[in-house]
Every structure is written in C-alpha cells, then in structure tokens.
Design a protein around this nucleic acid. Structure first.
Lengths: 126, 126
DNA sequence: CATGGATATGCATCTGAAAACATATCGAAA
DNA sequence: TTTCGATATGTTTTCAGATGCATATCCATG
C-alpha cells in the first residue's frame, strides 16, 4: 500500500510515561520520582539530588511526603542537624521499591520500543 | 524477605501514557487524540465527537491542525456547508494511522500489564 | 437565494500545578 | 553554647494549557 508517511518517519519520536497511582488516579510513583528517590539514596541528600536534577526542594519534599503517606511507612531515613546540616538515606523498603520499579521500567521500555518499531513498519509502505 | 508492601497491594493501580512526539518533544498523537480521530471517523462529525467525549470543539480543532501540520497532509476530509452544516471523514492515511496506533497501543497494554503483575510480585514477600 | 448547522479561527479568561520566596527547626562538632 | 547547613513547611507568584465566548465562513437543500 502506498502511503505518504514514509518521508518523515525518522522524525517521529516515541515518548511514554508509566506510573503507580492510588485508587483515585492520583499519581504516586513514576519516572521522575523514581529517579529522584534513587539519586537521594546515592547522594545521601535531598538538597544535592534536587540540584542535580533541577527540581525545587519544596516540590520534591512534598512528593516524598505523598509517596510515604500512600504506602504508610517511610522510604527514607531523614536526619536533621549536625555539622553537615542533615542527610537522607533509603530504608530497606525504599531500596526494594526503587529496584523493583527500575526492573519494571526497564522491561517495559524494551517492549515498548519494539512495539514502536512495528508501528513504524505498519505505517510504511513495503 | 519480609516487606511491609503487602497489605495495600490491591490499592496500587497502574497508569501509563504512550504518544508520538516531534523531534522537540512536542506531543503529536497520543491516547486522547487517537480516540478522538477514531470517533470522528465513526461519527462523521467533529462536533458530535467532541460532545460525546466531553472535549471542547475549539481545543480539538487545534489538536487536529497540529497533527496535520506535523505529518504535512490531511488525516481528515472536511466538508463545510450544506443542510447538515458540514462533516468530517478520515482519509486513507488517517485510517491507516488510527489502525496502526490502535494495534501498537493494544500490544503495549498487554505487555505493560504483565510487567506490572511481576512488579507487584517483586515488592511482595513470597 | 435564503436558511441552518457545522466547520474555522481569533481572543479573553480561568485554573491548577510548578516555581519562587520566606522562615523555622534540628543537632553534631568546634 | 554558638554555628552552620540541610531538613521541614507555610505563603505567594507565575504561567502554560484549557476553557469560554464571539464571529466568520461555507454550501446542499428547500
């Protein structure tokens, strides 16, 4: 079948988001928050992680609260005070969640990219 | 491994969005616009489709223009005037695009749901 | 050749999420 | 016991995208 789609195929990009939500559809944990949690764990600091990812401290702090409120227990150990000002570290549950989400996301990515290539084939003439 | 995730697993929902974007990341065609195109095709009318889906005519008209501007050719045949006021119908390319996106979306859904079940397993103790 | 109803399009207004701003609190170390 | 820097949290401001409103345009049919 002849189609006019072919000429510009290479400029069609695929984008997607996958996230966990509560029963009312409020987003709980997705790409952004997952990366943020992971980076906080690596850096041991919320402030440092925000600066690296370019998010505001205020917003991210609120996000963390929402996630923990939803699950009902802390994903991060918070420490205030001291010469360093304070620090954060992932709890065991936090580590488990980050790891499981990473696996899920990574698998999904592979499959979605494959599906996208098939989609491009479908709208091409051959 | 013991985990505290188990109690509320059934209230964790999965949500996702998949869409096509241009090279600058501007969304071109996703879930909403795909369903809209499909429904316009079925109803033969933009106005009727908007009313059914609860979108404003103004917004949807703008979306259609964006999609067509991107692809560079019409996905819909538009007819103005006449006793009926006018009508819309999918072009051949429009039909092909809707069909291909539907297949892509449907396949992706199956795989993502499967991955989600594995994710829930991963954060459960077994 | 007048009419009606849908397409086509500019423009003002609303709105909720993100950003920006401000300030309080904590506590190990010097 | 003072200090310093990060955590904690309320308040205000911004702004893009959605909504709402208005109006022009088209033409098959009666």
């Amino acid at each position: 079948m002849e189609t006019k789609f072919k000429p510009g195929l290479e400029q069609i990009k695929l984008d997607y988001k996958i996230w966990l939500a509560d029963k009312d559809g409020n987003g709980i944990l997705g790409d952004g928050k997952w990366k943020m949690l992971k980076l906080i764990g690596e850096k041991g600091s919320l402030k440092a992680a925000c600066e690296e990812l370019g998010y505001t401290y205020r917003r991210t702090w609120g996000n963390i609260k929402k996630i923990e409120d939803f699950f009902g227990f802390p994903l991060l150990e918070k420490h205030r005070g001291g010469a360093e000002g304070g620090s954060m570290a992932l709890t065991e549950e936090g580590k488990l969640l980050v790891k499981a989400f990473e696996k899920f996301h990574s698998n999904a990515d592979t499959l979605i990219q494959k599906g996208f290539r098939e989609f491009l084939d479908d709208i091409s003439n051959k």
